[in-house]
Every structure is written in C-alpha cells, then in structure tokens.
Amino acid sequence: MAGKGYGALVGEGLWSNNQALVAMLGLCPLLAVTTTATNGLGMGLATTTVLVLSNATVSLIRNLVRPEVRLPVFVLVIASFVTAVELTMQAQFYQLYLVLGLFIPLIVTNCAIIGRAEAFASKAPLDRAIVDGLAMGIGFTLVLMVLGGMREFLGQGTLFYQADLLLGSAAQGFGLDLGEGFQGALLAILPPGAFIGLGFLIALKNLIDKRVERRRSAQRAARKTSEEPGASGELAPS
C-alpha cells in the first residue's frame, strides 16, 4: 500500500476511493453543513488541513509509537490539529466559524481522518502520507462543495452565497443569485435533501464507473480478438 505511486494515490483520493462516495466516511459534517457551497468549501478546507497535518505527523512518529497505544496517540494528534484549526477559524473567519459551529471540533471524530492515519499514514513514508492526505481531503472537499452547491441552488436560487465569509471582502460580488422571485425547493435545504443529493452523487459515480468499465472490457475484447491467430485473415499454422 505504501509503495503506490503519486498518481495512484491522487486517483484514489479524488475518485476510486473517495471517502464520501465510496468509503462513506465523514457523513455527519457532509450532510449537516452542506446547505451552501461556501459552507461545504469551508468545512472541506478545514478537514483537509487536519488530514494532511495528521497524516504527516503519524508518518513521522509511526516507528516510535507502540502498537497497543497507537489509536489513542493518533486521536490525540488529530485533536491537537483540530484545536489549532478551530482557533485559527475563530481568529480569521469568525462569521463562517459561527455558521459551521459545533462541526469544526467534531472533525476529531471524522472517521475518514483516523481511518487514513491507521490504514495508510502509519505504514507510509512522509511524502506519500502527505500526498494521500491531500488527495483524500480534496476529494472530500469537492463532494462537500458540489453537494452544498446543489442544495443551495435548488433551495434558494443562489450559488456561493456569502462567499466573502471565507474568501474575504473581494468575493462579495462573487457567486450567482437568481433573485428574490425564485421559488426554490424547500426540500433541498432540509436534512432529507442532503440524503437525496448524496444518493444522486453516489449513483452518478457508480454509473460513470460502470460505463468506463464496459468500455475497457470492450477494448480488451477487441484487442484479444485482434491478437488471435487468423484474426487478420491469415490461416493459423497446422
């Protein structure tokens, strides 16, 4: 596992082993905070930061921690970085911190983070642990942002509403607004809308995977047929 190349690690994090769409980890913040794309992006960036830093730290101390205490040590490492991220958000992005609320400290309990620390970072060198954490974090962030954008657009007719809470005053005019006359679907911004939206994203990913696999199977079959004796019109030797 630790010997995987950077490309394979990035591919797994973004798609084939996406922690939200495949592993189904971290669903609590995924479903709770994705009422807007801005909220999803903010939570995703916070989670990615913790994931990268905890992966790097676990990789550095993996040979110093006894196996019987590794999980408590990993949780302590993650909790330390979550506290640092929480204090940073309070100082720099206070309004967004108020919106995300309790779900920032709850990053400690995100199974995706402890799962990567235990399954990968504790067995991998520093460079691969960092790449894995970054890829998994970006994949998780993209799902948060897409789901938040879907719910926000369908529910209230906006996209990246209050982006200035995360990106600063320069982003006040950033985003899309269909106006006050838009009649949105209330279900989209209610809790059931999060489950329905996530279900559509998972179904879309599975559909794409199946189509890609069918195409690859057809290509393999065509290649095998072309390599068979007599496929090009020549008789096979008797």
Rank of each mutant, 00 (worst) to 15 (best):
A46N: 03
A203E: 00
A222T: 11
A129R: 01
V22A: 05
M145W: 03
M1Y: 06
R211H: 13
G179L: 08
R211F: 15
M1H: 07
A91M: 07
R116T: 15
S59H: 03
A79H: 04
A37T: 09
P72H: 04
L198F: 11
P192Y: 07
P29N: 08
G168Q: 03
E228D: 05
T38N: 11
V212C: 05
A112R: 07
E86Q: 14
L186Q: 12
G173S: 09
A79M: 12
Q19D: 11
G157V: 03
L100Y: 05
I61G: 09
L167A: 13
L235E: 14
L64E: 12
Y161Q: 13
L14V: 12
L178E: 04
T141G: 07
T48I: 07
L106W: 01
F195G: 14
M43K: 06
P191W: 01
P229G: 05
G181C: 15
K224W: 00
L106R: 02
I130K: 11
A121Y: 02
G101F: 02
G44Q: 00
S59T: 07
L204F: 09
G197D: 06
V10D: 01
Q156S: 15
L126M: 08
G7F: 12
G233L: 10
V212M: 13
R214W: 13
R223A: 08
T38A: 11
A171S: 15
I202A: 10
T83F: 14
I189K: 02
G157P: 02
G148D: 05
L159C: 08
K210F: 10
G137M: 03
R211D: 11
I138M: 11
V99M: 07
V77C: 09
R214I: 03
L98H: 08
L21I: 06
C111T: 10
L201H: 06
